[in-house]
Nucleic acid binder design. Sequence first.
DNA 1: TCTACGCTTTGAAACGATTCACGACGAACG
DNA 2: CGTTCGTCGTGAATCGTTTCAAAGCGTAGA
Lengths: 335, 335
Amino acid sequence: MAVSVREVAAAASVSVGTVSNVLNRPEKVAPETVARVLAAIEELGFVRNDAARQLRAGRSRSIGLVVLDVRNPFFTDVARGAEDRAAEDGMTILLGNSDDNPDRERAYLDLFEEQRVHGVLISPRSDDLPRLERARSRGVPVVLVDREAPERSFSSVAVDDVVGGALAVRHLVESGRRRIAFVGGPSSIRQVADRLEGARRAAAETPGVTLEVVETSGTTVLEGRAAGEAIRDRAPEHRPDAIFCANDLLAVGVLQALIMLGDVRVPRDIALIGYDDIDFAQAAVVPLSSIRQPAWLIGYTAVDLLLREARDGADFVPEQVQFQPELVVRESTGH
Amino acid sequence: MAVSVREVAAAASVSVGTVSNVLNRPEKVAPETVARVLAAIEELGFVRNDAARQLRAGRSRSIGLVVLDVRNPFFTDVARGAEDRAAEDGMTILLGNSDDNPDRERAYLDLFEEQRVHGVLISPRSDDLPRLERARSRGVPVVLVDREAPERSFSSVAVDDVVGGALAVRHLVESGRRRIAFVGGPSSIRQVADRLEGARRAAAETPGVTLEVVETSGTTVLEGRAAGEAIRDRAPEHRPDAIFCANDLLAVGVLQALIMLGDVRVPRDIALIGYDDIDFAQAAVVPLSSIRQPAWLIGYTAVDLLLREARDGADFVPEQVQFQPELVVRESTGH
DNA sequence: TCTACGCTTTGAAACGATTCACGACGAACG
DNA sequence: CGTTCGTCGTGAATCGTTTCAAAGCGTAGA
């Protein structure tokens, strides 16, 4: 059924070694022989068996990537960056999404190990660092995405979320807002916690500024909408005059809730700022101010670090790359 | 470096065959031996090498899925359904997105063939059926997703888009609308063409109903927004009184464009209906009427067919499953 | 003529899990 | 006591590709 190098070799009257050379180092083979072998390949419809290749090579040509939520455009952008860098070295990205569930996260790590992936990129939900340590001790490079490792034990690519949170709130304060609400959760997600921390610090810088926390159970549009409705339904004097959301999906939800009633105007009554600057942010009903993270670049850089670690082996020193978040001002916070 | 069955066997003082049996048919092995082998596995940190397994087995335990656009929630839902069904048989989904690009589509097919996937699910962008025929002739089951095969040559899972398009327009007509615009494109995408065809037929049913086509170059929010702006900027008497969009992303974009100016109200001035009924539709500023497709079920069913085809081999008869689209009425078309 | 060298090609070994025909051992039975 | 049967365990062969030491061959220089 399946055509193997052996049959190609027979058809082209060469040895299997030569067929392999044609496939992998054609410059080492006489042009005429190359032509003959390629003809045989075409003729027989030969397709390389990747499993055998991997077995021989000892590891696969893939890199595992575990993200918190595929539905979030931020992560698909990260994935795209990773894919692009991987493609430069002829590698593939295996995408798994944990849905913020530690069990799924572990299942993907197991799967990736069985596949002998070149390495793993992960934005870990939990602090299951021992599990990651174990993977690395087996020679699988691990790079943390969008999260820094304690004690610099792992390479990581991250954006300083504390600074980002501070940027957002400082911007709101400078636009004259005083009663600020932070919408986000659960706080077990590190990114959420850090952004809140930054918000707290920025709020503390200016006397008279208050920061209220509206905790959500997740980071989707629907949860944002629920939070927004709760705020909208308050008496006007109890509403904040600005809202900082832990990500853009939440902000879109909040925006919908506020605008749908019609008596809360953005940014006039309440200013709104999100986080991630996904494509959708600028296309929202009221274009959304946001904190931009270089999503594509994060993925690209993470794979870059990973490949370097894979190449250098044991004497590789973990490296932490940190990008700076950037404020993007649009209509939702008034120009 | 890597721990193999051989070493586990040595550590547990059994043969490699027994280790394999413990892994795959524990009931055939004496309980005490099982315990000893498991202990050795734990002790040495043994992890199965999937490549070797696949090589022996002849094919991998994965199924390839090529979608047109990962950013579209409709496709991530399909993928989720596929993943769930695959997991029931201990299989994995390999996700590739073609971005509506025939080259990328082909690249993924090649990759999947090298991986010796169990089968391929694809919502083909092009009519490159010969390529798919070839794959199947090599024993790789192919199931078309969201698209029916001419001459029933392939199994497929689809929703009748012509009916769906007709449903949408009939609903608009019944709500009293007469000057209808279809927003969508490019028409090379079969789904788009079919929905338009359905719209045409429905419009023809009622005298006095006109159908205008506003062609877009893609199916994203941004392209919808551009189309919406073009319509919004017309003199009111030249605007349609209803818009049917080829999918919800486009509809969201159109909605933003119409509402942002403020002098076009939805549904009062223009009724709006989308397609797919993604989560976002009901969360839109004006909750969006839409044509629902059972995305999760489509993915689930497709894998089911695929596995059946893989099991039955050559004497499997292609099977076409067709779901019926369903009208979901919300605020954007007036209750 | 012989040696040396470069260019090509060869073919067996290796990767690691699985399979399967076969052997070892005890118990049950006649 | 000998035979049969069932339970467990064995280990060589296998999957298809890559690698690498070695060999074949023709040419140029001594």
